Amino acid sequence: MAHPQMFRTSDGHLERVRSICLALPGAAEKVTHGRPNFFTTKVFAVFGGSLKGDHLAPVARRALLFLPDAAEREALVTDERFFVPAYVGPSGWLGLTFHDHDVAEVDWGEVAELVDMSYRNTAPARLVRELDAR
């Protein structure tokens, strides 16, 4: 059974996340489990998610899911904008909510840094070298 689409294609937050993710070497997008996933050989970012026990939580529906460095994770979880998403949270992933924030209010430089960190944690070494050479 296919998952229903759980995002608006015209979402301005998604458009910005997409432009950041797809600018990375070898990055592509596919919709899985109803959400846009950005990947090389492994997924490095997802737009939208859920909380354990609440699949419709507004805080998670419009969010960036990413895999931070273990050393960074502790500091990030103390910030109220971040949450532990269902399913991937036990593997170290976090979510940055865009809920109640207009596109213009989001620090897109910070989002790009989080995506970069997650990309480096999941992409093949050759793609990371290509990114560093840019």
Rank of each mutant, 00 (worst) to 15 (best):
G49M: 04
L51P: 08
L76C: 13
R81W: 09
L76D: 01
E74D: 14
L51D: 10
A75D: 09
V46Q: 05
F82E: 00
G49Y: 00
F83S: 03
E80K: 13
G49K: 03
T78G: 09
L65S: 04
E72D: 15
P85Y: 03
R61C: 13
E74R: 13
H55Q: 14
L56A: 15
D69T: 09
G49C: 02
A45Y: 00
L67D: 02
S50Y: 04
S50T: 10
V59H: 06
R61I: 10
A45E: 02
A86R: 01
G48D: 05
D54L: 10
F82W: 07
A60G: 04
A60T: 04
V59K: 08
F66K: 01
L56T: 15
T78L: 15
A70Y: 04
R62V: 14
E80S: 15
A86K: 01
A57F: 04
R62W: 05
A70L: 13
E72F: 13
G53W: 11
A63T: 03
G49N: 01
G49T: 09
V77W: 08
G49I: 07
A63L: 08
R61P: 11
L76P: 10
L56P: 08
G53Q: 12
L67C: 09
L65P: 00
L67M: 13
L51R: 15
R81Q: 02
T78S: 14
T78H: 14
F82Y: 11
A86H: 07
A45T: 07
G48C: 06
A86M: 03
D79Y: 07
L56H: 14
V46N: 02
F66H: 02
P58K: 03
A70D: 12
L76K: 11
A57Q: 10
D79K: 11
D69G: 10
A71E: 10
R81H: 07
R61F: 04
F83M: 05
D54K: 10
D54S: 14
D79H: 12
L51Q: 13
H55R: 15
A45Q: 04
S50I: 01
A75E: 09
F47G: 01
F66Y: 07
L64Q: 05
R81V: 06
L51S: 09
D79G: 11
L65H: 03
L67W: 02
F82K: 01
A71C: 10
F47Q: 05
A60D: 05
